[in-house]
């Protein structure tokens, strides 16, 4: 068997451009590849890849493999697996990095089991052990109540990385790299699932992932109404978005697209205002990257105060409207 070399980033596209997670993966993949004195490659799969391949080079890739096929317009495990398996075998990289995204979560375990190797999901930190040249992969476990570092001698070492955990490199359009269009014959008879319909649950206003300010309501908010009134008014003043912990989403108070947490969205805004949020580890996992967490909770022992920079102990129904009014006053100048 050929020796496994180099780092391969499994890239994703968003609206024809490189997804932000992919720039983050290239940023950390570049460092790992430099530590190993090996190359960084990026795989891009879609119906048309277009300019994104050049972006991948500008963000750190030495080589970009593009696989284009009309059947790859939408992610489906059985078609995407054909590409991932073929390229993993042909390129035999030392490690494959994927995002802990809806696609990465679904594709990475299948690929690891298909290849008979190991996978570490949802990693926060990656480094190279200088002696064994193995990837040390650190990830949260027990709902964020601990972290664990894993390694494996099986190649490729497949890893998914949490969104916003890594920093992209500065974009440099003068970087040189090679784009290698690669043909993969997709065997349609192997696609066993059929997507009948895709339903978008649009959340009005700014997208959570992009919002500089997020106001999040927890179970303690008590029902669906405050998300549309008290919390929304606060978010609107700060040009922010409204999010929720898991119970409001599971109870149907808000669409699940608003769920922030280990199994929901991962966000890292400048200001994160947690209202009636207890601070369960599973939730904190989704917001701990925020620059400033502000907690409003009637329970002074609530775990969220351990995460917060500023806090108010009190019933949110009383605290938040007064907070909002004062902000209005201050911001009006």
């Amino acid at each position: 068997m050929a020796e496994n070399k180099g780092i391969l980033v499994y890239g994703e596209l968003a609206g024809g451009k490189l997804a932000s997670i992919t720039t983050e993966l290239l940023g950390c993949g570049r460092k790992l590849a430099d530590d190993l004195k090996e190359d960084l490659s990026c795989l891009l799969v879609s119906d048309t890849v277009g300019e994104a391949s050049k972006e991948a080079i500008a963000f750190g890739a030495d080589r970009v493999y593009t696989v284009e096929d009309a059947s790859l317009k939408q992610y489906q495990a059985d078609s995407y697996m054909q590409v991932a398996e073929k390229l993993a075998k042909e390129l035999s990289p030392r490690a494959i990095l994927m995002g802990q995204t809806s696609i990465g979560r679904d594709l990475a375990p299948r690929l690891a089991f298909r290849l008979g190797v190991d996978l570490a999901t949802d990693c926060l930190e990656l480094s190279i052990d200088p002696e064994a040249k193995l990837l040390m992969r650190t990830r949260p476990v027990y709902g964020g109540n601990a972290q664990a570092t894993f390694s494996s001698e099986l190649m490729p070492q497949i890893t998914t990385v949490r969104t916003k955990a890594m920093s992209p490199m500065e974009r440099d359009d003068s970087r040189k790299g090679e784009v290698i269009p690669t043909k993969v014959e997709i065997d349609a008879s192997k696609i066993r699932t059929k997507i009948v319909e895709t339903i978008k649950e649009e959340v009005a206003g700014i997208k959570l992932e992009d919002a500089p300010v997020i106001v999040t309501g927890g179970r303690g908010v008590g029902g669906p109404e405050p998300f549309k009134t008290t919390l929304k008014e606060l978010a609107d003043i700060l040009h922010g978005a409204v999010g929720a912990t898991r119970p409001p989403a599971d109870n149907g108070w808000v669409p699940s697209a608003m769920h922030i947490g280990l199994t929901g969205k991962i966000v890292a805004p400048d200001i994160y205002i947690a209202v009636a949020v207890s601070g369960a580890s599973q939730h904190v996992a989704g917001c701990s990257g925020s620059k400033n967490i502000i907690a409003i909770n009637k329970d002074p022992e609530a775990n969220i105060f351990k995460e917060a920079k500023f806090g108010v102990v009190g019933k949110y129904e009383e605290v938040v409207p007064a907070f909002t009014n004062k902000l209005k006053e201050i911001l009006a100048g």
């Binding site: 978008k200 649950e201 697209a257």
Partner: peptide, 9 residues
Amino acid sequence: PDGYEIVEV
């Protein structure tokens, strides 16, 4: 991420 898909298998 922003909704759901109906899948048949």
